[in-house]
Amino acid sequence: MRDASAIHFDERDDAEAFVEMLAERRVTAHLHREEFAGEDDAEDAAWIVEVAGEVEDLASLAEEAGGWLIDAGPTAISPAPPLPEAPKRLKRGSSPRPAGR
């Protein structure tokens, strides 16, 4: 279970309307701006709505409002393939090449 979720919005009006909609549902939300690394223009900063607690269908509500849910959960990492027991020979023959050749 998540303690808080983050929703990304490009437009301030959409983010503020989403916070108001959540307030009507008695859900605590906080709106702030977040600049991306290397971003020169402050106008390009994203609007982030942090939502406390669990909200049913939060992703679909965010999408309807013009935003999207930022997935901050752990990503599934596939296990590494098993290592070979011994080195693979690339050329024919089982004896190693004599030194000096």
Rank of each mutant, 00 (worst) to 15 (best):
M1L: 10
D3R: 14
S5E: 13
A6W: 14
I7M: 07
H8G: 01
H8R: 07
F9G: 03
D10C: 00
D10Y: 05
E11C: 01
R12S: 08
R12H: 09
D14I: 00
D14Y: 09
A15T: 00
E16K: 01
E16M: 04
F18P: 06
F18D: 04
F18T: 09
F18R: 06
V19P: 03
V19Q: 14
M21P: 02
M21Q: 15
A23H: 08
A23I: 02
R25F: 10
R26Y: 12
R26H: 15
V27D: 08
T28M: 09
T28G: 08
A29Y: 09
A29L: 13
L31Y: 06
L31C: 13
H32S: 14
R33Y: 01
R33N: 04
R33H: 01
E34L: 05
E34W: 02
E35H: 06
F36V: 11
A37R: 12
G38V: 02
G38K: 07
G38Y: 04
D40Y: 00
D41S: 00
A42G: 03
E43L: 08
D44L: 03
A45R: 04
A46P: 10
A46R: 05
W47T: 07
W47K: 11
W47E: 08
I48P: 04
I48F: 00
V49N: 10
V49D: 01
V51E: 06
A52V: 14
G53R: 02
G53C: 09
V55K: 09
E56N: 12
D57K: 14
L58Q: 09
L58V: 11
L58N: 04
A59V: 09
A59M: 13
A59L: 08
S60Q: 15
S60L: 14
L61Y: 05
A62T: 01
A62H: 02
A62E: 10
A62D: 05
E63K: 10
E63L: 11
E64G: 03
E64A: 15
A65L: 13
G66M: 10
G67K: 01
L69A: 08
L69C: 06
L69K: 07
D71P: 12
D71N: 13
A72I: 12
A72G: 15
A72D: 15
A72C: 11
G73E: 14
G73C: 09
G73V: 02
G73R: 13
P74I: 12
P74A: 15
T75A: 15
T75S: 13
S78A: 12
A80F: 13
P81M: 12
P81Q: 04
P81S: 04
P82G: 01
P82F: 03
L83S: 06
A86M: 09
P87N: 02
P87E: 10
K88T: 11
R89H: 04
R89M: 07
L90G: 07
K91I: 05
K91M: 07
K91E: 09
R92F: 04
G93D: 00
S94H: 03
S94D: 07
S95Q: 10
P96I: 03
P96W: 08
P96E: 05
P98Y: 02
G100E: 03
